[in-house]
Every structure is written in C-alpha cells, then in structure tokens.
Write a protein that binds this DNA or RNA. Structure first.
Lengths: 192, 192
DNA sequence: GTCTATACGACGATAGAC
DNA sequence: GTCTATCGTCGTATAGAC
C-alpha cells in the first residue's frame, strides 16, 4: 500500500507541477527538464508514469486544471442562488489574481488550447472538453434560474468565451480591469 | 533606389511570413529556420534586418497584425453606420475563417500575447498596444453612435475581449459557432 | 519502479567570406 | 548587404544499471 501511495504521489506531483508551468509559460516554452527539476523527480519516473511523453502529460494537466476550475465554480454556484450574481462573483474571483503581479497564475487552459489546437488533435480535444465542462456548469445554473434550455446553452458558451477573453486581456495588461468590466456586463447579458 | 526597394522587400517578406507562422503556431513553436525557409531568405539577412533577433521580429510581426486588423475594421466601420451592426459584421467576418479548417489563419495577436505576457516586457507591450488600438476603434464608433465617452471606453475593452475569447473558443472547436453566438449578443450589450 | 547517462536533433545566435 | 558554416545550448526521448 505504501508503494501504491508513493506511486500515486509521484504522479500527482508531476501533474501538479506541469499544470502550473503550462499555465504560466505554455506548452512549448515549458521543458520536461524544468518540470522534473521543480517537482524533484528523475526523468525515468516521468516516462514510467507517462509513456507517451510530453503530450500525454499535457493532456493530464489539462484534465487537472479542468477539475480544479470546475470544483471552484460549483462551490460558488452552490453558495449563491441567482445566476447573474453567482457568475459575476466567480469572475471577480479570477480577477483577483491580476491585482498583484506575483499572484498571476497564468492562463489555465486557454494558452495550451491556442498553442495546440492546430498541432495535436488529442490535446485539442482535451481542451475542448474542459471548456465544454465549464460551459455546462454555467448552462445548468442558467436553466435553474429559469432560462430556456437552448438560450442557456448559447449563453453558457458566450460567458465562457468572455471569461477566456477577459483572462487573456487582463494577462496582457497585468491588470484586473478587463475581467472586472466583463463581470459588470453579465447582468445586462442575462436580463430577461 | 533598387537597393532600397530590395532591402525593404526582403524585410517585408520576412515580417509577412513571420506574422503568418506566429499566428498559426505561436512564438515558441515557430523557429527562425522555418521562417527563413518559407520566406526564402538566408539567416544572415534576418540578423541584418533584425539585429535583436527573434524578439524584435515578433514585435514587428505584432505591429503588422495590428495594422492589418485595424485597417480591415475601419473599412467595415466606414461602410456600416450603426455601431451594433458594424461590430456584428466585423465579428462574422472573422468567424468565416473557421468555417473550413484549411482557411484557419490562427489567433492574430492573442496567442503571442498569452505566450509572452509574463516572459518579455517589450513583446507584452506591443501586444497590449495592438489591443488598445483596436479597442480605440470600437470606442470611437460607439461615441459616434451616441454613447457617453466613459461607457464607450469600457464597452470597447469588453467587445475586444469577447472577440479574443471567441477566436480562442472557435479555434479550439475548429468551428465558427462561438464567434457567431458572440456576434448575436452585441445588440443586447449595446442596448441603450 | 527508480534513477543516470546519453543519444540525436533543433534551437537561437554569431563569425567571417564575399 | 548577402550568404554559409558553425557554435553552444537545450529540447525530447531512450537504454540500461540498480
């Protein structure tokens, strides 16, 4: 049992470090050597746990980021009843990261998606799935709030796109303003 | 004069090729060798025209993309009077690229911005300037359409962020739907 | 399963002939 | 100004000892 735990822990540590670096630097700027150095694991372990190398590791990292964001959003959605307030709050939570430069954790899945959409079909699909999972969460919240299913689906995709664009824009300015302005528009967009 | 023309032409050819490849593949996935091979110029010429190497070339490529998008948007804005219709049309024009996979030209400045925002300050500033130029074009159109200046500024940034997010989202799905859904929301956002 | 040493190619950049 | 040869570094991946 100790062996299995050690195995799992090494694997998790690699994925966690990879997720952080891929977010901050992107796929091509992040070398396996850097991931291994920062996670303090030898190269042999990486290719034991991820026989398909960097691409497989990136896919698992994307799934990891997907689950993390998903959990965070669902927690907020359980605490705040009205869809517009809930979505606004989750955007301002993301925006907080851009208040101090040293707090910036990067572009969760968007950077990897943009880099690999035309390069790796498996990675592209992993990123698409992350986006669709998040959008589904928005959609369900909107349906609960009384929106018709079709409208809720469209708005889910639009809101997610707005957030991704807002992150990119805030990242470029190293400033939370773009994301906060987007949060401000949410009630207008969701007016029935 | 022939010399100067030849000089200018070589420079332009490198920038044009670099712009295309950076859009499609990003900064780190695009090697100088690939740019030189595809533009049919030798390595010596590149470092003659761009003594600061890859970073300088990328900055000039960003400026080139900025001007291209800017010109295209202003042309549309001159032809369509109402801000909401004009902005909607310019988004559907971008969306057209995602109808056929072979037409996709990538992520104009967004990919480079996301890759380099935390890596190169000069490159980050070039990307920020591109975004601000585009936003200023939206803002001016909105002011002409009767919006108060402060509101127009905020909406300019929001619209640009939405478009950037829409491009990323359409790129990930290799499908124009996200951008078209965003275009659909523009009148709601601009309702006075 | 863990770890090290190494293979091999591509990268950005430079030197120097012309 | 144009072009080629080459440098040093780092990339991913693998082989094989333990």
């Amino acid at each position: 049992m100790n062996d299995k735990n050690a195995k799992r822990e090494t694997r998790d540590k690699i994925i966690k470090t990879a997720s952080r670096l891929f977010q901050l630097q992107g796929y091509h700027a992040t070398g396996l050597n850097q991931i291994l150095t920062e996670s303090e694991t030898p190269k042999g372990s990486l290719y034991y746990h991820f026989p398909n190398g960097k691409e497989q590791l990136a896919i698992e990292a994307v799934n990891n980021m997907k689950d993390f964001v998903q959990a965070k959003t669902e927690k907020i959605f359980k605490e705040i009843a009205e869809p517009d307030k809930a979505i606004q709050f989750s955007i301002t939570e993301v925006a907080k990261e851009f208040n101090k430069v040293e707090d910036i954790t990067g572009f969760p899945v968007g950077l990897l998606a943009a880099e690999t959409a035309l390069m790796s079909e498996p990675l592209r699909k992993a990123c698409q799935q992350a986006f669709e999972t998040w959008e589904d969460t928005y959609t369900k919240k909107l349906i609960q709030g009384g929106f018709p299913e079709e409208t809720a689906k469209e708005l889910g995709m639009v809101i997610n796109s707005m957030i991704e664009g807002g992150i990119l824009r805030s990242l470029t300015n190293k400033d939370s303003t773009p994301l906060l302005l987007i949060a401000k528009q949410i009630p207008i967009l969701l007016k029935k």
